[in-house]
């Protein structure tokens, strides 16, 4: 058999890359929330995947309640906000007590939050999976014979928008600058009379907002189930480490590597596609243990 016939043609490959990229953007949104909370709060927040799941479920409820195609767009605006308010509750109730505790304890306590919300989700939404209709139907032709589902364009655009927004926030707004200062030296910021507690709460809400946004965005393209939080969490944690702990652009790059890697995996050995992100993470961590970009730690 001719070996070349085994390889997919160019257009399949290109559209696969774009699908991979759009998945990467969602992964980025969850991962960047983790990265920000690691960079500023120094807490590895395993509950971030849970906020992603809650974003998806909340979006579903809002979309159902409003109804029609408009329902989803309303949900996309409102659901992340709802999730970030929930995040504030968790921060004030639990996370605030964790900031100076041993790391293992932080990991496990945020994981306990995962368990808690998994069950609350089951109580509220039940155990059956939910779906939202794709708000943008049809395909767009990118060039010659490469086409992509229209909705993926929105996903593709969202990642760079979020990355740019975060960059603008940390470099060009007062709160962002204080946040960066807090990340480097909390005592100093406190000494300047700035309430770092408030900054921490804002940062945590922001990371929950991003996770919620990721969940709402992915909702129309997937089955919304309770386990989705943990699945993305494992990948997001690895993305954050591979990208360099606390480095936003590193996280962005690592997300792309993971997303595109997985979609190539789908082409080469579809059955073993889920192996690829872990294999990539392992190889990258062996080659560059502290991440591909500079870690803030």
């Amino acid at each position: 058999m001719d070996f070349l016939t085994l390889l997919p043609d160019f257009s399949t490959m290109t559209s696969q890359v774009f699908i991979g990229l759009s998945r990467a953007m969602i992964l980025f949104m969850v991962a960047v929330g983790l990265t920000v909370s690691i960079g500023v709060l120094r807490v590895i927040n395993f509950a971030n995947g849970t906020f992603y799941m809650l974003g998806a479920f909340t979006a579903w409820s809002i979309a159902m309640w409003v109804g029609g195609t408009a329902g989803f767009w309303v949900a996309l605006l409102v659901a992340p906000l709802v999730v970030s308010v929930l995040g504030l509750v968790v921060e004030a109730g639990l996370l605030r007590r964790l900031y100076n505790r041993p790391r293992l304890l932080q990991l496990l306590l945020t994981y306990a939050v995962v368990l808690l919300f998994n069950d609350i989700t089951k109580i509220i939404w039940g155990v059956d999976f939910k779906t939202i209709e794709v708000p943008l139907k049809g395909f767009v032709t990118l060039f010659s014979n490469v086409s992509l589902p229209s909705y993926n364009l929105i996903l593709l655009a969202s990642g760079p928008l979020v990355a740019f927004g975060l960059w603008f926030f940390t470099n060009h707004t007062m709160v962002g600058k204080i946040t960066r200062a807090t990340a480097t030296d909390r005592e100093m910021v406190d000494a300047l009379g700035i309430n770092s507690k408030k900054i921490f709460a804002i940062v945590f809400m922001l990371s929950c907002y991003l996770a919620g946004l990721g969940g709402a965005l992915i909702a129309p393209t997937t089955n919304i189930v309770v386990g989705m939080g943990i699945t993305i969490l494992v990948n997001a944690v690895l993305v954050v480490v591979v990208g360099g702990l606390g480095n936003i652009w590193g996280t962005f790059l690592a997300s792309i590597i993971f997303g595109v890697g997985e979609s190539f995996g789908l082409l080469i050995a579809p059955r073993f596609a889920i192996v690829f992100p872990f294999a990539i993470a392992t190889v990258l961590l062996i080659l560059r243990p502290t991440g591909i970009m500079k870690s803030v730690w």
Binding site: L238, V241, F278, A279, A281, T282, L285, I286
Partner: peptide
Amino acid sequence: FLTLAMGQL
């Protein structure tokens, strides 16, 4: 995290 990555692999 490397134990995590390799374990998941």
